[in-house]
């Protein structure tokens, strides 16, 4: 029988895969996709908690997270397009002006 812990472990592993992508990839677009993976890991944990604790508030939270993620992606991709128009790159190693 599948327990609450199993879903939480899948969620933790998914979060760590997203973290791995954020830490190792250099392309801004793939970095954004890794961020989406991490948000989805949180969603999975919240839905599992909602199911196993008989409380629908977790599902409402996931609904809000999905909406905020959609807004975040639209603004972030617009920023990437503006950045590419100015600098002709989406590689994070070429964007290091703020580094000391």
């Amino acid at each position: 029988m599948i327990q609450f812990e199993h879903y939480l472990i899948v969620s933790a592993l998914l979060f760590c895969i997203g973290l791995l992508g954020v830490l190792t990839r250099k392309n801004l677009l793939v970095l954004y996709m890794s961020l989406e993976l991490m948000l989805n890991a949180a969603n999975l944990a919240l839905v599992a908690a909602s199911r196993f604790h008989d409380n629908l508030n977790g599902q409402i939270m996931v609904f809000f997270i999905i909406t905020v993620a959609a807004a975040e992606v639209s603004v972030g991709l617009a920023l990437i397009v503006a950045l590419f128009r100015r600098r002709q790159t989406t590689n994070v190693q070429d964007l290091s002006e703020l580094k000391l």
């Binding site: 809000f64 807004a71 975040e72 639209s74 603004v75 617009a78 920023l79 397009v81 503006a82």
Partner: peptide, 16 residues
Amino acid sequence: LSILLLVAMVGAILLS
């Protein structure tokens, strides 16, 4: 949240 989506839409149009 609906206002947030509106702001995001305006921001995305303005940024691009």
